[in-house]
Design a protein around this nucleic acid. Structure first.
Lengths: 195, 195
DNA sequence: AGAGAATTCGGACAATTGTCCTAATGCTGG
DNA sequence: CCAGCATTAGGACAATTGTCCGAATTCTCT
C-alpha cells in the first residue's frame, strides 16, 4: 500500500479513537490495532503522538470547512443554513449522547493537558464562529452583533452536547433544539415598513 | 497525623488535580507529591485510584449541596438565588477560563473512559438540576416546566464554561452572564391582574 | 517507660507508555 | 531477473503507571 493511503487510514482511526476515548487514553497500540498495522510501522509515518494529533486536527478542520461550504452551496438562505448547524445535535445524536461534542471535549482535554495544539483545536471553534457570524450578517445583523449571536449559539449547542452526554436524555436534546430554532426565528429583523 | 486528616488532605489535593489536569492525567505520584506523602503511604488510605475518585465525587457532592443550602438560607427570593448560580461563571471566572467547569469536564472524561463512577459525577448535575427546578417552582412554574427551565439554564452555563476555556474571552463570559440574567427576569410570570 | 496499635516509608512488581532501531519484505524501473 | 527504494514487521529502550509488601517510625494507653 502507498504511504499516503496508510497515513490516511491511521489518521481516520486516530480521529475516531480520540473522539470516543479521548486523546490521552488512546495509545499507539490502540490505533495500530485498529488499522491492523505493526506498532513499528507507526514510527515510519508519524514520529510522535503529537504529530498524529496535529494531523487529526488538520483533517477535522478540512472536513468541517467542507461541511460548512456544503451548507452554503445548497442555495438556501442563512436561516436554513443556521438551522442545519443546530440540527447537528439531532443528526449526530447517538454519538453526542455517548461522547459529547468532538470539538468541545477535545478542547477541554487539551486545555487540561496544557497541550501545544490547543490553538489548533480552538481553530475548529473559530471555523463555526465565523461561518455563523457570516450567516447572521446575511440576516442583516452588523458585524459585532453577528459575532455575538454566533458565539451565543455556539455556546448553547456546546451546553446541550455536554448535558446530552451526561443525562443521555433524547427528549431534552430535542426540546433544546426546538428552542434554539425558535430563538433563531426571533432573530430575523422585522422589516422597517412593518415596525 | 490522624488517618482521617491525611485522608482529607489526599482528597482535597486529588480534587484540585483532577479538576486542573483531568482524572487520568493525574497520577498517584502527583497527588502524593502534592500532599508530601510517600507513595507507599497512599495504599494505606486508598487501595485504588477509583476509590480516590469516589471520595472526590462524594466530597464534591457535599460541598455543592452545602453551597446550594447556603444560597437557600440567605433569605432572598428564588430569582436572587438563581442569579447566584449564574454568577458562579463570574466568581470562578479565572479557573473556568483555564480548566472549564469541574462538573462538565469530569463527566465528559468519565463518559469517554466508560468509567463506573459516571453515575456519581452525573449526580452533581442532578443536584443543580433539582435545586434550580425548585427555585423555578417557587417562581410559580409547575413541575415539568420548572425542570425544563432548570436544564435549560444548566446547559447554557455549561456551554459558556466550555467556550470560556476555549476562547479565554472575559467579555464573552460577561455578555453571556448578562444575557442569562435578562432571560431569568423574563421568566418571572406576569401577575394575573396585569395581563 | 514500654507494649501494641496506627501510620508512614522506601522500594519492588508487572504492565503499559511513547519512542526508536534494525532487519525483513514488497514493489518498481532497467 | 535484479538493484534500489519504499514500506513494514518485530522487538528493544527507559520511563511511568497502578498496585502492593515488609520494615521502620510514630503515637497511645497503661
Amino acid at each position: 500500500m502507498t504511504a499516503e493511503a496508510t497515513k490516511v487510514q491511521i489518521v481516520e482511526a486516530a480521529d475516531r479513537l480520540f473522539y470516543e476515548r479521548g486523546y490521552e487514553h488512546t495509545s499507539f497500540a490502540d490505533i495500530a490495532a485498529e488499522v491492523q498495522i505493526s506498532r513499528g510501522n507507526f514510527y515510519y509515518h508519524f514520529r510522535t503522538k503529537d504529530e498524529i494529533l496535529d494531523a487529526v486536527i488538520r483533517r477535522r478542520l478540512e472536513t468541517t470547512q467542507a461541511m460548512l461550504d456544503g451548507w452554503e452551496a445548497e442555495g438556501a438562505g442563512p436561516v436554513e443554513r443556521i438551522t442545519s448547524f443546530i440540527q447537528i445535535l439531532i443528526v449526530n445524536q447517538t454519538k453526542i449522547m455517548a461522547f459529547g461534542c468532538p470539538v468541545g471535549t477535545l478542547t477541554s482535554e487539551l486545555a487540561k493537558l496544557g497541550h501545544p495544539s490547543q490553538a489548533g483545536a480552538t481553530g475548529l471553534f473559530s471555523l463555526f464562529r465565523h461561518w455563523l457570524a457570516r450567516q447572521f450578517g446575511l440576516m442583516g445583523r452588523d458585524g459585532g452583533e453577528a459575532d455575538q449571536l454566533a458565539l451565543h449559539l455556539l455556546a448553547r449547542s456546546q451546553g446541550v452536547a455536554t448535558l446530552a452526554s451526561a443525562l443521555r436524555d433524547k427528549a431534552f436534546v430535542e426540546a433544546e433544539v426546538q428552542d434554539m430554532c425558535a430563538w433563531l426565528s426571533a432573530q430575523v429583523p422585522v422589516p422597517t415598513h412593518l415596525q
